[in-house]
């Protein structure tokens, strides 16, 4: 697209859109063009929603989830005070758990995993807050839902070691629901075999 002063704002919008995950310059141009063509139906409502979220979104002071108040809806709900606390790396993981709709307890978002090489220690990860919460909220079980990476597992071991007085569990690793063994890598099959159970 040829640029001049009259199109500079649009070019700026395309540049910003292209920085979003999953979008590149070509798809950003297509999206911006689409929004401009649907100004009333999509562009203006999107702009308004972006503005509102931009001014109101914040981290829940209790769990690290993202909401528009000091305390998120899950932490505010008495129904979610089941005594179970699910620890996740990121808000995206919390949303994934919520989409499944099975877990009825509360969450704690760490904001990453331990990494000495990247200078990410327990203090940077809301781990002290987790330890405080376990005592303050009468938690009976902490469920670690962390990635099966080296850093994820180091973080899991670390938390389990710090929480000696409460039951600590982790999500199972193995065959995905609807999955076929033939398509699994060796590591997953090994993990699944180790975690086998009686029927």
């Amino acid at each position: 697209m040829a640029t001049d002063d009259s199109t500079a704002d649009i070019e700026r919008l395309i540049e910003l859109m292209a920085r979003l995950p999953g979008l590149g310059p070509r798809s950003a141009r297509r999206a911006v063009l689409h929004l401009i063509k649907k100004r009333q139906l999509q562009l203006l409502p999107l702009a308004e929603a972006l503005h509102r979220v931009g001014t109101t979104a914040r981290e829940c002071l209790n769990c690290g989830n993202i909401g528009t108040g000091d305390v998120c809806g899950i932490c505010a709900s008495e129904k979610r005070a089941t005594g179970e606390l699910c620890v996740v790396e990121d808000v995206a993981d919390l949303w994934a758990m919520e989409r499944a709709g099975v877990f009825k307890g509360r969450y704690h978002v760490l904001g990453g995993t331990l990494s000495a090489l990247d200078a990410v220690g327990p203090e940077e990860l809301r781990i002290p807050q987790l330890i405080d919460r376990v005592a303050a909220e009468s938690i009976t079980e902490v469920i670690l839902a962390l990635g099966a990476t080296i850093d994820g597992q180091t973080t899991a071991h670390y938390i389990a070691d710090r929480l000696q007085d409460v039951k600590v569990t982790s999500l199972a690793q193995g065959v995905p629901v609807g999955g076929e063994l033939d398509y699994l890598d060796d590591g997953t099959i090994t993990a699944a075999l180790k975690a086998r159970r009686s029927l």
Binding site: A116, L117, G121, P122, I150, T154, T155, H157, D161, R162
Partner: peptide, 30 residues
């Protein structure tokens, strides 16, 4: 690769004189 990565992390803790036994414990487990 897993051993080397966990050892690099532990070496960083040692170099930075970090004293958190839980962090060492988690890496030593790996």
């Amino acid at each position: 690769v897993t051993y080397e990565k966990a050892m690099r992390e532990r070496n960083r803790l040692l170099k930075d004189m970090v004293r958190d036994p839980h962090w060492y414990g988690a890496l030593e487990q790996q």
